[in-house]
């Protein structure tokens, strides 16, 4: 787990800007949420993916210290979620599939985010993704935790790189509540599934991509394949497939 965390948090991990530069042509970003400002931590825009118009939303963590400060270390602010909803509305208007790229820390823990209605912005984004009338595919390039990640990840298809993780809270936060309880040989992922392979077994993750070779190239192939499958579904089928996937998964535990 700690090795995986090092990889996905390193400065040279593939990020949103690299994926967009290599896979999307004519990318045009939206600026601002038309309420309170622009959140640089989340890029939302539209462009062409193999001649098909798509909407892309991706978190920026930044590589250099300067970048990381500018992007607020990838902690998406309420304005970011509202800009994301703008992107989703654009996608529905023009029937464009949505691709989200996730590598982000937990919530933006700040007075400003609380005062700006972070909780409601996240809830609105989850609701919009739940009922989205076009296909959506979420890609975990790195980590995603808490409600913010859920807002970007509630989708028809979930693609994860092997080292990436999706969790209710950061591994560090979960370690804290585990103190004094954990058996030495058990890994955190074993206790609480959060890494790609464990979540695939759970039925949450659809595609696990290897960490070898050209990562962007393998993502390109996976996206094309999943988009081709989803484009056969009607609007009603897309919504049903997405909602049932999650409802059936949680109903396995309690109903």
């Amino acid at each position: 787990m700690s090795d995986a965390l090092k990889v996905i948090r390193s400065a040279d991990r593939i990020g949103t800007q690299q994926v967009i530069a290599q896979l999307i042509t004519n990318f045009f970003p939206l600026h601002g949420d038309r309420v309170s400002g622009d959140d640089p931590a989340l890029t939302v825009g539209t462009g062409l993916f193999h001649q098909r118009a798509v909407v892309v939303a991706g978190v920026n963590r930044g590589a250099t210290l300067e970048e990381r400060q500018r992007y607020h270390f990838g902690a998406v602010a309420p304005a970011g979620y509202r800009k994301f909803i703008r992107g989703l509305e654009l996608a529905e208007k023009f029937k464009r599939p949505v691709i989200t790229l996730i590598n982000m820390p937990g919530a933006d823990a700040s007075v400003a985010a609380e005062d700006d209605g972070q909780n409601l912005a996240i809830a609105d984004a989850i609701t919009k993704m739940n009922g989205l009338r076009v296909p959506n595919i979420a890609v975990f390039l790195g980590e995603g935790e808490s409600g913010g990640a859920l807002a970007l990840a509630t989708s028809n298809r979930l693609i994860m790189f092997t080292n990436s993780l999706y969790s209710v809270a950061s591994p560090e936060a979960i370690q804290t509540i585990l103190k004094g309880h954990v058996a030495a040989k058990q890994t955190l992922d074993h206790i609480l599934p959060m890494q790609a392979a464990a979540l695939k077994k759970l039925g949450l993750t659809d595609v696990v991509l290897p960490e070898t070779g050209d990562l962007v190239q393998s993502l390109d192939n996976a996206l094309q394949q999943q988009l081709a499958q989803l484009s056969k579904l009607s609007t009603a089928e897309l919504i049903e497939q997405r909602q049932n996937k999650y409802l059936e998964l949680v109903a396995q535990f309690a109903e």
């Binding site: 989850i126 993704m129 739940n130 808490s146 409600g147 859920l150 509630t154 999706y166 969790s167 209710v168 809270a169 936060a173 979960i174 509540i177 609480l192 599934p193 959060m194 979540l199 759970l202 949450l204 999650y246 998964l249 949680v250 535990f253």
Partner: peptide, 12 residues
């Protein structure tokens, strides 16, 4: 926290 990702998926 003790139910991990399954708790998160209650939200959506």
């Amino acid at each position: 926290m003790q139910e991990g990702i399954l708790s998160l998926l209650q939200m959506n």
